[in-house]
């Protein structure tokens, strides 16, 4: 257990308060409580309680307390904070293809916490096709036309086709 008062306690309190409001805490937002982001990071790394977690972004570190949100949810917020919709869609898809495994309905990105618009999603998927880093991300569609994404690293094409059809059509016909 870290100190109950003092600078580190204040940093943890701020992170926990943000997490309770379902927000990540970027390191830059800790500056009023520490001389700069680096020293805040160092203090947290050295002695924060186990519930305080860090995710390293392209330009920022983000913190959250897993007392208020799971790592899975924090990852979504982190990807949103990074403002790279192509990566957000690709990495979310990879996670689902690996974990469950299952393809990801594109329509899921219309909903909370992503709340993207259809044009944003379409543009991201179109952009993904020409970037080598995302070559593993493939599309498949169910017979009702719904589009799904999957990572070929974790799911084969036939399996992804079958799962998308099951989730989108088969399951609804067999409630």
């Amino acid at each position: 257990m870290a100190e109950e008062t003092g600078p580190l306690a204040a940093l943890m309190e701020k992170i926990r308060a943000d997490s309770a409001e379902i927000r990540l805490t970027p390191a830059s937002c800790l500056v009023p409580l520490a001389p700069d982001a680096e020293s805040a990071a160092a203090a947290i790394e050295a002695g924060a309680d186990a519930d305080i977690k860090m995710m390293r972004g392209s330009a920022e570190r983000y913190y959250f307390s897993d007392r208020s949100m799971t790592e899975a949810y924090a990852k979504h917020l982190y990807r949103l904070a990074e403002r790279d919709p192509v990566r957000l869609i690709a990495d979310t898809t990879r996670d689902e293809s690996k974990t469950y495994p299952r393809p990801t309905p594109v329509a899921a990105f219309l909903e909370s916490p992503f709340s993207m618009t259809q044009p944003e999603i379409d543009a991201a998927i179109a952009a993904m096709a020409s970037i080598q880093e995302y070559a593993d991300i493939r599309t498949t569609s169910a017979s009702n036309g719904a589009l799904y994404l999957y990572s070929a690293t974790h799911l084969g094409a036939a399996h992804a086709d079958g799962l998308a059809e099951w989730i989108e059509v088969g399951q609804k016909e067999n409630p």
Partner: peptide
């Protein structure tokens, strides 16, 4: 849908 408390969806 993703929820703050949920590990899985």
């Amino acid at each position: 849908n993703p929820q703050p408390w949920a590990e899985y969806t």
